[in-house]
């Protein structure tokens, strides 16, 4: 298949892994900092999303492969949170 960008090399993978490790460390530390309080949840969600995107984009090559894969996968990735946000909303879980 025609690839949009050249695949990364092992060195890139190690750098990506390092970034993932740093984010994970940040995630854990954030939960121990008391004064962040209400800001913890959004920070954690953003960091998880970043890790998710990095693994999918680099390790699963979605950045570099045929766009069809990205489109097919994204349907599920987008559908799941929307549907279940609606369900949890109707239970009043997401408001609190």
């Amino acid at each position: 298949m025609a690839q949009q960008r050249p695949h990364p090399r092992p060195r890139d993978y190690w750098v990506v892994a390092l970034i993932l490790a740093v984010i994970t460390a940040a995630e854990v530390s954030v939960t121990y900092i008391d004064f962040l309080d209400a800001a913890v949840a959004p920070m954690l969600l953003v960091m998880a999303a970043a890790k998710f995107a990095i693994v999918v984009g680099w390790f699963m090559h979605l950045r570099f492969d045929a766009p069809m894969y990205r489109r097919l996968f994204l349907i599920g990735v987008i559908a799941a949170p929307i549907l279940f946000a609606a369900v949890l909303f109707s239970f009043g879980v997401l408001i609190g």
């Binding site: 069809m68 097919l72 599920g76 799941a80 279940f84």
Partner: peptide
């Protein structure tokens, strides 16, 4: 390419599987 399309389609479906489990937990 054919197998990768199938795999990505399947993984898209798996998102809903874990989505259901995670939202059950959140509830």
């Amino acid at each position: 390419h054919i197998r990768k399309v199938a795999m990505w389609v399947f993984l898209g479906s798996e998102c809903l599987l874990f989505g259901t489990l995670i939202s059950t937990f959140l509830l």
